[in-house]
Amino acid sequence: MTTGHLAQGRRAQDPRAKSPRAPGRRAPEHGTEHVMTATSQRAGRRGTAPRPSLPPAERRRRLDLHRSLTTVVVVLIVAVQVYPLVWLFLTALRTPADFASGNLFALPGEITADNFVRALGTGNLGLNILNSFVVTMGANVLIVLLGTMAAYALTVLGFRLSGVVRAVFLLGIIVPVQIALVPLFIDYSYVGLLDTYASMIIPLAGFALPMSVYLFSSFYSYIPGELYEAAMLDGAGPYRIFTQITFPMSLNTIVTVVMVNAIFIWNDFIFANTFVLSDGLRTIPLGLQNYIGAMGNVDWTATFAAVCVTITPLLLVFLVLNKAMIQGLESGATKG
């Protein structure tokens, strides 16, 4: 899914978004009103008595207090938010006896990597990771390629019914994936696509495509027409312009699209759970669920370790790329 994209996609749907300050469209009325009252009152005060305010030292002390209080509250909230994950990793390092003894808050009495050895030995986690990689890559290639192509046709080339086609894509943003499960299951079993990589890749790409189309469209609407005119004067046709100008210029948007989609595709459970039947094609969520089903009540600490193994690759990627990711999401939201 493309949660992050919805915000960015609004740019394309919202006619007001032409102006870069669209989000504040209403605010200036409020704002100016306030600025005016503020200045007039200040002017009035200046003429009469000075404002009875706190001495600077006292004010600074209060501000400092306020700040440290905020910091304490944020640290507490973040701790509660992140603690379950820390606990997950801590438990994976405990010995089974330590875990069974009960106190879940104590630090592990003795750190062991045995759980990980058992998790990797019992499960098929390596194959699961490989499968997830294939599906994530395949779907992302389709999302980027088809997204840029559709956006190019809609925004750069343009045609008479482009508004209708755009609206049809728009619809896809709010359609829940559940609607496709039964029909695709039936269609796949007719054409023999059940239990293949494609059975996961097609719906994952299809449902992510609308957001991708909007993101690329809104970016393309900012590319100045002079650039294309110059290229046409040099004799470039629509295909060369796409491969040599439009597509290469989309790099930043491609990065955002891929990063956000990768998270959701890597973690996809519902399509994989519905369309994959054999062990060999299980992606990480399925492999993990299988492992939990088999070992979850037998070898607890190893199951915690297995969970850690499956979430670590994406966590690492996220921690390394978080600046770019956060920026992508934020810029989408503010332009929304």
């Binding site: 909230i77 973040v78 938010q81 992140v82 379950p84 994950l85 997950l88 998270i263 890597w266 973690n267 459970f269 990480i284 969520p285 399925l286 993990l288 669920q289 939990i292 979850g296 199951t303 969970v307 499956t310 979430i311 994406l314 966590l315 996220f318 921690l319 978080n322 956060i326």
Partner: peptide, 17 residues
């Protein structure tokens, strides 16, 4: 960044947790 961490965890792992 820390607050966003749970968003990258798979639902299967979250359900187990």
């Amino acid at each position: 960044t820390l607050f966003l961490l749970p968003a990258v965890i798979s639902t299967v792992a979250i359900a187990f947790l």
